[in-house]
Nucleic acid binder design. Structure first.
Lengths: 352, 352
DNA sequence: GCCTATAAATGGAACGTTCCAATAAATCAA
DNA sequence: TTGATTTATTGGAACGTTCCATTTATAGGC
């Protein structure tokens, strides 16, 4: 109800006693119109309850100010943190980004991208769904829409990437475990269809190799990148005749799963089996025991991605430099028998 | 680069040797055109790399198929779960919803709503930011845009609400605590500017009253609805000369905070102090100890909200019935000294 | 006062679709 | 064959903006 025919620019022109062009100018904040005329127009807008039709405007302008964020898994707090970082910069640029979730499903991703294109997005930040191919983004490139990948990259794609230094992060974490005296190490979770997996696994392997772990003592367990996957990996590892004593996990969710499974078997994460996570989500420091993890500054990467896409839009290009973010290992309580070296962050700090 | 002038319906008409009207019909899947003509057109679309301009279409149609989900805090897994439920039904309806985050900020919410309206949304699901007034939604109503509130309601607004039975949930939880022998009870977190707060607190109070707790023994601590808030509430409570022995928390985040603070003081949640949460997010069962919480079927409520808004759009109305979802208490390990009655859900079940 | 320069406001065409009314083509009845 | 009916296709006028080229008002200089 009350759905009277929507007011247009013409209605408010009539109400204010000016021409539609004048109204349009006012709407765009042009300095060309006299302040009192502008005021008159603005009042009419208010009175009539006019709402701007961006679709009509874009028809003429061919440059919308819509930016889309395509996220592969919104329920993973890690990606929610990423989204929050991006929003921060978009908000201060006065633009409202639209978030869409692909739920790690390439088919859904295709739908989402199509819909966003039809909507005429000016630019896109995408954390691609697992198993998506460069093909899915061909269309975007053809249309000249600026796209940046966040956190994940695709094999052989020319789209710029904003991601942490996965290789180095994994290397640091592994070196730490070895430094604690562990000699038989596992890598938990992830699967080969993710480029990130190879990067992290690569860092793990390099550390093992250069620091003198025998090839037979480096164990790799693929699995889901979730708590569930972590549980499964741990079970598999402990079923071995000669189980590992420490694990680097693909991400924090996997690490949480592994710790859970340890507890269920009556083992204490940290002293009985060392666990290191990756990403350092806010829960990591609140877990029991607090999780040692590779911090990647997720919101910071989100901000960076937002800046890059903004700049790409502005300079009408579809290319940009990759950005590899610095990482650092945050040592807490979940690894190594040596409990004297605990590092604690203030318990109040983690509520974003 | 490659940003050649975008192909329009006319270009593909030319390429296929038909009229633009025919192309339009094909695009809409009209059965009026001969199958071989349609095929010809579709091929041209593919060849040219045409992308549909929904803005232009909406100009004519005045009925977009865009639905917006306005969420007050995306980093709270609870709301992410809600969003996931909604997405499920939208996906099967073939529509891509756009999510926008207000970060619990009424000003940002205003921007978001404005932007969504300008985009010509067909309908909206909103979990309003704390402290937002019905005024913020007046404009939507005037424009005849169907809106439903999810999880939260506004005082004196005629917009339909999909929410759990907060009063009953709080009542059940409180009764459980009293049944465990607790005689001095606290309510932790939340603040009076949230209708939900009054509902939950109301249930708590009613249970205390009808089950014979002396008014002097019911303690209320307002606070942030986050882990941080829970920590603060617990500190305040234990600072009392005669502290409570159990607390019902506004939500699970507050409960996690409270448990954290207990641990930090060397107290064991469950045996030394009983804690009950609200919402039953997936982490609740994975916490140490597993959190007793009021389950509200968040994704289910999301689905329901999506269905309602879809029906409203279809029947061109802006009114609908409220829906109050059933709740039930999931008893785990975080409350009462009686540890023999643990209820455990399968550890594998929680990964959405 | 007149001419010029500047400032402010305006009409009209275009943007890419949809949809109605109209035409063209195919089918059928006689 | 012709006319009537059905089936496919099409031109043209909208939809609500923007922006260019104009027009009109205002001010300055002499």
């Amino acid at each position: 109800m009350a759905s009277r025919a929507k007011a247009t620019i013409l209605d408010i022109a009539r109400a204010a006693g000016v021409s539609k062009s004048t109204v349009s100018l006012v709407l765009q904040g042009s300095g060309l119109i006299r302040p009192d005329t502008a005021a008159k127009v603005r009042k009419a807008i208010e009175d009539v309850g006019y709402v701007y039709n961006r679709g009509a405007a874009n028809l003429r302008k061919a440059h919308s100010n819509v930016i889309g964020m395509v996220i592969n898994d919104l329920t993973n707090p890690f990606f929610a943190e990423l989204a929050v970082g991006m929003e921060r910069v978009f908000q201060s640029a006065g633009i409202v980004p639209f978030i869409a979730n692909t739920a790690e499903n390439p088919v859904r991703q295709e739908e989402v991208l199509k819909s966003l294109m039809e909507q005429g997005v000016a630019g896109l930040i995408v954390s691609p769904a697992r198993g998506s191919t460069p093909d899915a983004f061909r269309r975007l490139e053809a249309a000249g829409v600026p796209v940046v990948f966040a956190m994940r990259r695709l094999p052989e794609s020319r789209i710029p990437v904003i991601a942490p230094d996965n290789h180095r992060g994994a290397f640091l974490a592994t070196r730490h475990l070895i430094g604690k005296g562990h000699r038989r190490l596992a890598f938990f979770g992830g699967s080969a269809d993710l480029v990130v997996y190879h990067e992290r696994l690569g860092g793990f392997r390099e550390a093992c190799e250069t620091l003198g772990i025998a090839p037979a003592d480096v164990l790799v367990f693929e699995g889901e990148t979730s708590r569930k996957g972590g549980i499964a990996c741990l079970e598999a590892a402990l079923a071995l005749a000669e189980p590992p004593t420490a694990a680097l996990c693909f991400n924090d969710a996997v690490a949480f799963g592994a710790m859970l499974a340890l507890r269920k078997r009556g083992l204490e994460p940290g002293s009985d089996f060392a666990v290191v996570g990756f990403d350092d989500v806010v829960e990591a420091e609140h877990y029991m025991p607090a999780l040692t993890s590779v911090a990647v500054d997720t919101p910071g990467l989100g901000e960076r991605a937002a800046h890059v896409v903004l700049k790409m839009i502005q300079s009408r290009t579809t290319r940009a430099e990759d950005h590899i973010g610095a990482v650092n290992l945050v040592v807490r309580e979940s690894c190594g028998p040596d409990r004297s070296q605990e590092v604690r962050r203030a318990a109040m700090g983690g509520v974003a």
